[in-house]
Design a protein around this nucleic acid. Structure first.
Lengths: 115, 115
DNA sequence: CATAATGTTTACTATATACTACACACTAAA
DNA sequence: TTTAGTGTGTAGTATATAGTAAACATTATG
């Protein structure tokens, strides 16, 4: 679950730095300590996109992975798809079962800019 | 707007087939006529994913395009991304500015199954 | 030992989402 | 010409989303 990841990561950081207490993290993130407590214990549904991103930044966790665990997708990715829905929908469904290395290959090709 | 697309398409079909009155379409789709009326005139925020898909099916419109106009993304696509968030997030951002033909090329390669 | 900080419990709350239900005026068909 | 069908205006609702706020018991610190 999302909460477990957050708690585990925060407690790890806390051992080396007391600025990672639940209250202090909540303070930096801009939410109530009580709410972060409930998030970490999966007592509430996952927070909103912005809150997940702020928590991820504070704890140096990957925001896309955290959002995925929350059943969400970053709005910047959504926008990319929404701008060309036919193309990207087709591509995603085509790559659904593709092995990881095939997708990485696509990234590599495109990053090399050979179009 | 989404409503315009629906209204235009429905009225086009209605000219050839009176089963495409607002009431009859609403009936098949499973929503109140008053609601469909408001959707077509953009008087309400876009309906939910399932309702958009049903309307799209009835009027033979592309559901991914309709969902995009509603600011949404089909849940099956979201699931594809959520299963491998690192990979697909990276790929989408890499392809953000890529020209259409480059994306189609990716689809072609993958569809040919040469991995 | 006092007090400061920690995590948690309980009780709310505001806003958005996704609609329904009924009544109405107008037009077309039998 | 009545009645069947069309689209629309108004009012209301259920559920989900995304949190806040105060008080509490427990542990750590000066």
């Amino acid at each position: 679950m999302l909460g477990d990841q957050i708690r585990t990561r925060r407690e790890l950081l806390k051992d080396a730095d007391r600025r990672y207490s639940l209250r202090q993290v909540a303070g930096r993130v801009g939410i109530e300590p009580a709410y972060l407590s409930k998030i970490e214990r999966n007592e509430v549904p996952p927070p909103g996109e912005e809150t997940i991103k702020k928590i991820s930044r504070d704890l140096e966790l990957d925001p896309d992975v955290m959002l995925a665990m929350a059943g969400k997708i970053s709005s910047d990715l959504q926008e990319i798809i929404r701008k060309r829905p036919l193309l990207f929908s087709k591509m995603l469904r085509a790559l659904k079962e593709a092995p990881d290395h095939a997708i990485l290959e696509v990234v590599r090709e495109v990053t090399d800019g050979d179009w």
